[in-house]
Amino acid sequence: MFTGIVKGVAEVVALERKAGLLTVELAFPQDFAEGIEIGASVAVDGCCLTVTRHSAGRAVFDVMQESLARTTLLDLELGGQVNVERAARDGAEIGGHPLSGHIDCTAHIVSIDTPDNNKVMRFQLPAEWARYVFAKGYIAVNGCSLTVSDMDRASGRFSVWFIPETLRATTFDAKQVGEAVNIEIERATQVTVDTIRSYLDERLGPLLPRLEALLGAGALDELAARQLPDPNSPQDKA
């Protein structure tokens, strides 16, 4: 498990591409790899990877086809930078929200605004995942626990505000419009939405699509969100 609080930025120092497999070597920031062992889990841009070899300040990971197909790791390049976090230890403070490191999908940056001492990014989600994202709810973007500032259900777009400290500690300050990012949906939200929709489908059957059309796009998902507890304090809030 991870907390969504990025602990540093690592550099890609070696890549080996084979059919269905990518081997990546990362150079970590100072002290990040202290005590790391073979078999340890590290979140790399939010994707849980297993250490296969390590040396002073570095570690090697094998990325399999399923992860390559679902994440941005296939696009890694030598000299590129990624967000990294070690697996949480028992009793660790959850400063963000619990993450599994299992990426659900990728999203694309559609706009970037820079008001004074802030940065605002807007992301485009695949339609099938938009139902799980709500204003003021949690989301993990490239392994960073963030708060959604607003969500447009019809377009599948959401925005996040970044404070200077988050920009300093992560790779987000270098991101550009059009780039892809890894998304992990907050699991409690997904389970709640799916459970309520399943219940309504069981009760209403063929009437459910008509009810959705009558109420408007996303109305049932917003209703499901009312059953969720208010989020605590993830890494950034808007």
Rank of each mutant, 00 (worst) to 15 (best):
F2G: 13
T3I: 05
T3D: 11
G4I: 10
V6Q: 03
G8E: 10
V9S: 06
E16K: 15
L21A: 08
L21M: 07
L22E: 03
T23W: 02
T23I: 04
V24C: 12
E25R: 14
A27K: 10
A27G: 00
F28Q: 08
F32H: 12
E37R: 12
A40R: 00
A40L: 00
V42W: 05
L49F: 10
V51W: 06
T52K: 15
V60R: 15
F61E: 05
D62F: 01
V63W: 01
S67Q: 15
T71F: 11
T71D: 01
L76R: 11
L76P: 04
L78V: 05
V82W: 03
V82N: 09
N83F: 05
A87C: 13
D90N: 11
G91E: 12
I94S: 06
I103A: 00
P115K: 08
D116T: 12
N118Y: 02
K119Y: 01
V120R: 14
M121N: 03
P126H: 07
A127G: 03
V133W: 03
F134N: 07
S145R: 09
L146Q: 11
T147F: 07
T147E: 09
D150C: 05
D152R: 08
S155R: 15
S155I: 03
F158A: 03
F162M: 05
L167E: 06
L167A: 07
R168V: 09
R168N: 13
K175S: 11
V177K: 12
E179S: 02
A180T: 08
E184T: 13
E186N: 06
D194S: 05
I196W: 09
D201S: 15
D201N: 15
E202K: 13
R203V: 13
L204K: 01
L208W: 13
L208P: 04
R210H: 06
L211R: 00
E212Y: 03
A213Q: 14
L215W: 13
G216R: 11
G216K: 10
A217Q: 13
A217D: 14
A217C: 04
L220T: 00
L223S: 02
A225D: 07
Q227H: 10
P229H: 04
P231L: 09
K237M: 06
K237E: 10
